[in-house]
Structure formats: C-alpha cells, structure tokens
Design a protein around this nucleic acid. Structure first.
Length: 281
DNA sequence: TGACACCTGGGT
DNA sequence: ACCCAGGTGTCA
C-alpha cells in the first residue's frame, strides 16, 4: 500500500521486468475496476492488449504503464491495490479479489507469466489513456510536485497558501504528491513540528527542516523495501523492515523513544494523527 | 474545507 | 459485534 515509497518500489520492480514483454491477452474479471476514460471503444484495447511494455512512470503515489504504441494505463493503488508479477505463471499469495490478468510473452514468443491486479477494497483503479501527454496534461496535472523532487522554495510557497493544519496540508496531493498518513506523522515528528500548526504559520527554519526530513524519510523507506522482493510484487511484503522505525505512527498511548512522554492522538482532516506533545511544538 | 461515502479484512 | 485501516472523489 501506497504512499510514495511503496509506489516507487513497485515501479522499480516493474521497470526491471516488464519492458520488452508483449501483452498477449487481457482478462478482466471485474469490469468496474477499470475507469471509463472514454478513450477506447473496447476494454481490452484500453488495458494495453497487444502492446509491448516500454516504461513505468510514477508521480507521488500514482503509477502509469506505457507501451510502445503510446497507450498508457494509469494506476491508483487506493488502500489495498497490488500489482503482482508472476513470471512463472503460478499464483503468489491469495487468489481472492484478483480483478485483472495480463498474460505476457517474451520477444522470442515464449510465455513470460502474467501480471495481476488485485485490490480487495477496490478503492484503487485503472484508467486507460491514449498517451503520455494526456497523462501529464490531464490526469497528473492536478498533482503537486513529487515529494522527492519538490524544492524548498516550492514547499515554502505551497504551505504558505493555507491555514489548514500542516498535517492536513501535507496529505493534500494537490499541494505535494506522495505523502500519506504514515509519513506525514513520521515526518512531522522528525521535524519536531506539531501537526496541528496552521501550515501558513510555520517558520522558515521549520520548513527547511521539514523539507529535508521528507526527502530523507521517503528515500530511506523506499530503499528499505526495495531488496525484499524478486519475482513477485506484494506491497505488504517487505514493509516490516521500515515499520520497526515508526516513531509515532500507530503508537498512541505508548511513550516517545526520545523523551518518554506519552504519544497523543487526534483526528485531523478525518485522519488519525499521532504526535509527541513534548518533542513537537 | 470538512463530512461522508466508497469497500473488505483484520484485530479486539 | 465492533472498531479501525497506508486513499480519494464528491457533496453541502
């Protein structure tokens, strides 16, 4: 599941295996996971049937698969979306909630297993697009700068535009793309900022700290998960290694590793928020 | 800008 | 039986 590190991990694995492979067939078991962008007359056409994989893209938490003829499939992972790459054609993990299968072939025509879209809660979805241009001009246009790319100045300007709690602002993908509930809490803790602070009221020092922390945190988390997986992709797997280092997320009522103070929690923007009232103010 | 809705599964 | 969940689109 999907914040930037998980999405980037998936992207890297797909990029290592998919380019050059041919989509020999697409099998859709649940049509409603494919969003109708009105760009294709047939569903299989929109789902890259007959295409040859070229490149895998990511912006924030979102992914896109591109094939050589220009077609693009945009992917939102939602809370439980998974892309499983089964090179030997044998299932890895649970068989339930598998909504789409892509049967793959190597250039030489031999079978290359399959790619599977699995999404129990179905908050995620697949959107067929006609080009990378459409992807950027229409679908990813509303996203803010990617959290790994954003400049200090951009972050400053964007946080300055709203009086919402900084935690809420960080979760807004139009402001900055890629941060979810876990890394918002963890980042604010490392930067020693109270999550309830109106984002326009942050000092230059705090924003500088937050900027540095976000990049460090997200790249560390990405690298931590990158090595665990080989032949298949399961965002749940490999997550454990980074979970151990959560300082506040999921630790409400426990004591802060730094000062021993009890971690507090409240709801901000409808999301549970955890922080140390002593370290963060 | 916040409240709610969309879903299923896992933990207590 | 109940509460919670790493996301996001739509509504007043």
């Amino acid at each position: 599941m999907p914040e930037l590190p998980e999405a980037e991990r998936i992207r890297r694995i797909l990029e290592a295996h998919l380019p050059g492979l041919l989509v020999e067939d697409v099998h859709v078991r649940r049509a409603d996971v494919v969003r109708d962008s009105g760009m294709y007359s047939s569903r299989r056409e929109g789902l890259l049937h007959g295409g040859r994989f070229l490149a895998m893209h990511r912006h924030g938490k979102r992914l896109a698969l591109e094939v050589e003829d220009g077609r693009v499939l945009e992917i939102g992972l939602g809370m439980t979306g998974q892309l499983l790459l089964e090179k030997n054609g044998r299932p890895t993990g649970k068989l339930s909630h598998r909504h789409v299968y892509w049967r793959l072939r190597y250039r030489n025509g031999s079978p290359a297993g399959r790619l599977v879209w699995r999404d129990p809660r179905r908050f995620g979805g697949l959107t067929p697009l006609t080009s990378i241009r459409t992807l950027h001009k229409e679908y990813w246009r509303r996203l803010g700068p990617d959290a790994l790319e954003i400049s200090l100045h951009e972050l400053q300007t964007r946080l300055d535009k709203t009086k919402r709690a900084v935690k809420t602002t960080l979760l807004d993908q139009q402001v900055i793309a890629g941060i979810g509930n876990i890394y918002a809490d963890e980042g604010l803790h490392r930067a020693k900022i109270d999550p309830r602070t109106p984002s326009a009221r942050l000092g230059a020092q705090e924003i500088r700290s937050l900027h540095r922390v976000i990049k460090t945190l997200l790249s560390q988390a990405t690298e931590a998960g990158g090595s665990t997986i080989r032949d298949f992709i399961d965002p749940m797997v490999g997550e454990g290694s980074f979970q151990a280092s959560h300082a506040v997320y999921g630790r409400s009522g426990a004591s802060c590793h730094t000062c021993g103070t009890t971690i507090e929690s409240c709801s901000l923007g409808g999301r549970t928020t955890n922080w140390c009232p002593c370290c963060q103010h």
